[in-house]
Design a protein around this nucleic acid. Structure first.
Lengths: 345, 345
DNA sequence: CCTCTAAATGAAACCGATTACATTCACGAA
DNA sequence: TTCGTGAATGTAATCGGTTTCATTTAGAGG
């Protein structure tokens, strides 16, 4: 009997056709039961549902995607996947996407395959690879996304000059301003700014806030030139300590463009016998989880990375659906005062 | 005028058929030029290559995947995407995958869509969703992966009891042993162990190493019951400080199952006026980047997370290709001595 | 010149779904 | 009875490639 052997290994996975045959309907009806049950009669629907269970049928997503000319996935371009800063944004993105049954694809733009030849990235920026792209790397060139093959793009956190795609940003200007005002109110007049790499979009905005803070508090002349730069990392923060001590001895406080740099800086200062906040005050940026547990716990500017990720994903989905969406969304930041700042001696 | 605009949006993207027509060959030849150029004549190949450039043709990956009955993607199941620990493993995975032109799909098993109903995960564990799965979450049940629809699975870091899939692990036993021996050699006899959640596979292995260390150094009787537990997080490490101080005052050293717990613990102890390593020594596990910059810099067990990720991806690829692969791979760990340990007072 | 073989190529089936369009049917109105 | 209408369903085209298999072609050997 043909029907008896059901569980042989070599029999192919059940397809929609098999379900249809067992339920005694056409494949179109089976498809409708899965996508829009309301339009099929109760009898047929139940027969199909039984047949699905009985055959152990699973939809082939690739086939559906081909027909519907979609991919069912969104690509996230992250500068350094190993960096905790980004993982929390990704987590926000992942949250929204999985609600929409979309997959999250991750590409490390600093991975060995891509480094050195950014044009290789172009191969991934295709409508057949992803329905949309979320860029977290501000270093990429705008021309990469200019191709007609490139799906809709949203920028989050950092932004790319010349790229006309919606941006989801923290209020970096306000963050810089808050940090400086906090320090100025404590009585600091010589405030150094440890920024990111030259040209980084985050640092540019924050610098603007810093200078606004200087003006508002009337300390522009003293503080204006106390500038350092790093690359957001612990290591570069640590290295900045030496720079600070040799070139900017008058500084009594440092505002850092990332918590990691701040923690690295504190470490470096400690190595030179300088204690925070006793000798120098330090303010970070980001409020990474670690900052609350650092010694001393770090005063910092909190940005809601998870929320940025969520908003970026939501904006991208709107963009893909051709719904209207704001060209720029700025999410609020707040100052968290902990123990790394106090009045200068 | 309708005809005037040549580059209208509605003209479909070029397909393989268009390339073939322009090059004056069949679609089969075009396909061969892309997948196996060696078997087509030089003349045809060059004509096709020209046509590809001229039309701006891009392969539709979905169509190819459908025909080849593959997905071109690997799914990583991570417990908490926002946790820096996992991002570095992911980065290793991503590296290998992109070398092989495979996509990395990420699913946060702690995301709001999945929490509370792990069976929802089953929908993703299908051959049509991914060619393979890398599980980083030891809390999932083995039955999830037992379905005939589930693609090949590899476990990394943590492992699931009862799941018969290759495992890529750090040498956790040796890590526990190294930590204890180091402390014992410094003269500690009352060594507490701050483990992960009860039943966690990592903690079980490390405990085994800890006890081996106790025996080897002859301190089993003193140290055996100095046990604490947390959940690998900063917060739980911080909370463990109170527990330690109220229940295990005699401890002069603590071995923690993660650097994050260790840093949280140091923070909690500092709040109670206990200084590390002056009053208590602390050893961590993982060697997260931050541990070198903590105050004090943390003595810890280094595990090569990036390498674990790479190895996991490589193993999965072998598995998918039905090549032979080891059921268990153990990667070495090493002790890094920094400043959070010293002889007891 | 004929035969044989290997290389190059093309026609058409195939992957597994969705969906446009046609068809059937039941029912109420004319 | 006849017709129109809308709901339910089925047939077949379609998405865009890959790959099997058959055919053509070129070159070597007899």
């Amino acid at each position: 009997m043909a029907g008896r052997v059901v569980l042989t290994k070599d029999r192919h996975e059940p397809r929609i056709h098999d379900v249809a045959a067992l339920a005694g309907v056409s494949v179109a009806t089976v498809s409708r039961v899965m996508s829009n049950p309301a339009i099929v009669s109760k009898a047929a629907r139940e027969a199909v549902e039984r047949a699905i269970v009985e055959t152990g049928y699973r939809l082939n997503v690739t086939a559906r995607n081909l027909r519907q000319r979609q991919v069912g996935a969104v690509l996230a371009l992250v500068p350094r996947l190993a960096n905790p800063f980004f993982s929390q944004i990704l987590s926000g993105i992942a949250e929204v996407l999985s609600e929409r049954k979309l997959n999250l694809l991750v590409l490390d733009t600093d991975g060995p395959v891509l480094t050195g030849r950014p044009e290789a990235l172009g191969a991934w920026l295709t409508r057949s690879h992803a329905d949309g792209v979320i860029v977290l790397d501000g270093r990429l060139g705008p021309e990469l996304f200019a191709s007609v093959h490139c799906p809709p793009v949203v920028q989050a956190c950092e932004w790319i000059a010349g790229l006309d795609a919606p941006r989801i940003l923290a209020d970096n200007v306000e963050g810089g301003r808050l940090a400086v005002r906090h320090l100025a109110e404590l009585g600091h007049r010589y405030i150094a700014h440890l920024a990111g790499p030259a040209g980084n979009s985050l640092s540019i905005s924050r610098r603007k806030g810093v200078e606004r803070g200087f003006e508002e508090t009337g300390i522009a002349s003293e503080a204006a030139e106390l500038r350092l730069s790093g690359e957001f990392s612990l290591r570069s923060g640590n290295a900045a300590a030496a720079d600070l001590l040799s070139n900017h001895r008058q500084a009594t406080a440092v505002f850092c463009d990332s918590d990691e740099m701040a923690i690295g800086l504190v470490h470096g200062l400690a190595g030179a016998g300088i204690r925070v906040p006793h000798d120098i005050s330090v303010v970070g940026f980001d409020n990474i989880e670690m900052s609350a547990y650092a010694l001393p716990p770090l005063t910092t500017i909190r940005q809601h990375r998870h929320r940025i990720g969520r908003k970026a994903a939501e904006t991208l989905i709107a963009l893909v659906r051709q719904e209207p969406c704001a060209p720029e969304t700025i999410l609020p930041v707040e100052l968290l005062v902990r123990d790394s700042t106090r009045a200068p001696r």
